[in-house]
Nucleic acid binder design. Structure first.
Lengths: 254, 254
DNA sequence: CTGTCTTGTTAGAACTTCTAGCGAAGACGA
DNA sequence: TCGTCTTCGCTAGAAGTTCTAACAAGACAG
């Protein structure tokens, strides 16, 4: 009795080789998810229909319930896949980049490319959540991994401009002294606050300013990216990529 | 023959007084939308059901089609309402704030309060879009108004640190010279690029650096806010508000 | 070969959106 | 006051969805 349990753990995980039946099951699962992804990409997650997928696969409606407990289960699996996919590209980007500031730039580039390659996949993670939903432990673990890669990469970067006074901008007004503001109270607070609640970073041992810089990097990237991918810059004429790279540079040494 | 047309233009707009019938219609419309909002707030937009609303109002299913052409029409109306609501709070915040840097802070505070007051309303605008959707002209007009308020308010602010080297942070590393990076090429590009494509700002006459600062302000605010409201900071222990105010200050003079 | 386990099937309940057509009740002009 | 005209709410019903239940037929292990 498989009971449409976790449909993913078929091949790997268990030590023994996959039986032909298991391989078949895994393949059908993959095909279902493939169709689901395509459906989501073209009409959004709310248009995901098990029935339509079944028909397109030459199966009859309820057959899919042998593979997924229901529509929500399939969607949850796709979300988990999206998280895994992002974690993988992040790890890959961090691994291939040369050490130093290039690493975090590579991460930013990878994030944007990943998001633009499949906007709806981005929204599976960062889009509208259902009100009561709380992510299962499996997913929060992957999210933590992603943050860890970011923190690790940032930890190897020589200090750029601090998040308050943040990096590349030619428009340094001679009258305004960027450093004047750097001793404002709230920001010291933020440093110590983030360092004190290090749990968000999985108790990453990075120094406070790195914690803060990485987190701010993350939010600034998503600030541009989420608006761009959602189409809020559409018809505005300018190139979102330039805004993005500017924000990337805002936290990096020249 | 009303044909479930634009259900909103009942009272105002036309010069003559509203007939009792028109007032009744407007009231029913409002009640429908009220139920819809509540339903969305508790279960998300995908759970919006005309049938359920009708039942809860003591009406029978198809009666609602006298007021809205369909589910999508109702949702579109709610989205437009959300835009109008944000534009209103923005205008109010800009109007009551004292001139100077306090204005943009008031805008940021208003934005966050508005978002937290009803997260699903925030997502109606900034959440997952349906792939093919293009906003009608009515909505892009409101969006432009919102940007205009932001730009107007920013235009009255004395220059803070430029977006590259951006404001309040105590962690100014003595070794890193924030100004060193300020002449990097890409950023000059961005200034001129944004100024050249001024259409995104409704041809707002603000100087290039103001355009850039306002736009970056906007993305940074949404960067923190969207992640927070979507629950991505949940269980992380730190206080998102501090991150938010830090980003607010990042573009403001001390 | 036999029994179990897995898969796909159909039937059907309970939903949903949305259309068609009927009847009643209010608004308005003569 | 009367008749007409518009608007409104209803029921019936088509087409779609998710998902359950019971059944038939294949594949695998002993």
């Amino acid at each position: 009795m498989t009971d449409a349990g976790t449909a993913t753990d078929v091949g790997a995980g268990t030590g023994r080789a996959a039986s032909p039946r298991e391989r078949y099951r895994a393949q059908v699962c993959a095909e279902i998810k493939q169709h689901a992804r395509q459906q989501i990409a073209t009409a959004g997650a709310s248009a995901l229909s098990l029935n339509a997928i079944a028909k397109r696969m030459g199966l009859s409606g309820p057959a899919l319930y042998r593979y997924f407990a229901g529509r929500d289960a399939l969607l949850t699996e796709l979300i988990a896949d999206a998280y895994r996919s992002l974690a993988d590209t992040f790890r890959a980007a961090a691994a291939t980049a040369e050490p130093g500031a290039g690493g975090v730039v590579a991460l930013a580039d990878a994030l944007r490319a990943w998001a633009l390659a499949d906007p709806q996949r981005y929204f599976l993670i960062y889009g509208t959540p259902v009100p009561g939903y709380h992510a299962p432990e499996e997913i929060t673990a992957i999210a933590a991994e992603i943050m860890e890669v970011l923190l690790d990469t940032f930890d190897g970067v020589p200090d750029g401009p601090p998040p308050g006074a943040t990096g590349a901008d030619p428009d340094a007004d001679p009258d305004a002294d960027p450093n004047a503001a750097l001793d404002a109270d709230p920001d010291t607070d933020l440093h110590t606050h983030l360092a004190a609640h290090r749990q968000w970073a999985g108790d990453h041992p990075a120094p406070p300013r790195t914690l803060r810089r990485a987190l701010t990097y993350w939010t600034r990237l998503h600030g541009v990216l989420s608006l761009e991918v959602a189409g809020h810059f559409e018809g505005m004429g300018f190139d979102p990529e330039r805004l993005y790279t500017a924000e990337v540079k805002s936290l990096l040494p020249a």
